[in-house]
Nucleic acid binder design. Structure first.
Lengths: 247, 247
DNA sequence: AGACATTTAATTGTCAGACATTTACTTTAA
DNA sequence: TTAAAGTAAATGTCTGACAATTAAATGTCT
């Protein structure tokens, strides 16, 4: 019996946990260099493979970065918004796709949280936010657009809306809620009439934001939420009819 | 030159990326077993260490779990709310602590998002939500409570408030916003008077929720947000005076 | 002295093969 | 029939080697 000293968990997980705790608690500062792998081997009394597996776990969470060479090594990583965003989106998407979340639940969450941005967005929106939103509206109106591209544009529109609140923490927190909806929305088929209605509501929202009118924005967003839910219900019905038909 | 075939990225990162993509796209289903490490070695034409480092990366993101033994292996993991929660909280906490986010920004985000829950919470709150909130209020009133425990109880109160909206996606999205505030709030010193005021507002919120009165709840929460900001400003001032004093 | 080329040392990345451990299944014996 | 022993497959860990990368030290020439 050479190993299995501490607990049930694997050694690499334990070591990763210890280093992770040190980073979170601040014992290891951003950009600080971790000991070399060989030193970690001695310190934890394990082989290099084990240390490396531990480090790879941390790298997967963007907690450290590694570089080769003479002055290389593992360094505590400053978690960038970019990294946090993509982690957030990946996790949210998986959570939704793997846990039989109903469209209603996800949709409700998204619009509820988005509504929270409106007072701030009405106050702080800048010309470039409005321009981004109008650009997406214009794209959504182009003929021959596939449902998928339409959805992607819809997501971009909402992202611009959230960004207009000019609070990076809000943008980060909502990235998951907004982006993770895309796969779900992709299951809807948008008729010409549906798109016209959505575009009209998008325009209403943008105009209201332009006028810094939070109330009207809120009303329009609520209408959009209701309409989205309605579309989804119809899509579900059609889907159910389809699967129920060939009995 | 034995390796370095594809890109700049390390092999283990590439392999992890390929498998990750397969999971996200649905090519690999929940609970499906991945090929054994030895098979992955052949498939990707790399050594077992490399394959293992790739798998550890995925395990760190809770995308797979591994078990030993005859029927063991790596399995696609269903991302549980539990896992998603803790990932979310870890990421949010680090993002806030590593990027010089002002207390104002984080606080604004938290209360804005929390406000989004109120209409739903007023409609759906159950007795156990209210009970949880009142339990925390009671704890907050106990004498001799350390600031840290007071903060932790505050977080629990707000978590209960969010959970009252009865939407798991909202609870998940807000976990980060609520919990990541704790380290920031911990830097505040709460006088007896501060606590009394906070407890009074908590009670107001709970009573309003009990009466299913969204408007009053919203008003009280706004007052709490304003008061929290005020406390933080004073704490910052004191802090600045302290650092400015010994010149 | 300064600019450029070469060597060296440190460090991570990968490979190869071995043994340890765990677990389900099969076989055997009471 | 049941319990014990054995077997096979899989992951977890160890060891030692080599490859690749990079910065710094060293050497060489002008």
């Amino acid at each position: 019996m050479k190993y299995q000293l501490d607990q049930d968990r694997e050694l690499s997980a334990q070591i990763a946990g210890e280093i992770r705790a040190a980073i979170i608690s601040g014992k290891l500062i951003v950009n600080e260099r971790l000991p070399a792998e060989s030193e970690l081997c001695e310190r934890f009394n394990v082989s290099r493979s084990t240390v490396r597996e531990a480090l790879k776990r941390l790298a997967a969470q963007n907690l450290i970065r590694t570089t080769r060479g003479a002055t290389g090594g593992a360094f505590v990583n400053r978690l960038s918004y970019q990294d946090a965003y993509s982690q957030q989106i990946t996790t949210s998407t998986l959570l939704l796709s793997m846990n039989e979340i109903s469209f209603e639940t996800a949709c409700e969450a998204r619009f509820a949280l988005e509504r929270a941005c409106i007072p701030l967005a009405a106050e702080r929106r800048q010309p470039d936010h409005l321009a981004a939103m109008r650009a997406e509206i214009h794209r959504q109106g182009q003929p021959g657009l596939s449902d998928e591209v339409f959805c992607a544009s819809d997501v971009s529109f909402h992202r611009a809306l959230v960004d207009a609140a000019d609070n990076p923490v809000i943008s980060y927190q909502l990235a998951g809620a907004v982006e993770a909806m895309q796969p779900l929305m992709n299951m809807i088929t948008y008729s010409e009439r549906d798109r016209t209605r959505i575009i009209s509501l998008h325009t209403e929202i943008t105009d209201a934001l332009n006028a810094r009118n939070a109330e009207v924005t809120d009303t329009a967003l609520n209408a959009l939420a209701a309409y989205t839910l309605e579309l989804a219900r119809h899509a579900t019905q059609r889907h159910q009819e389809k699967s129920a038909a060939p009995k």
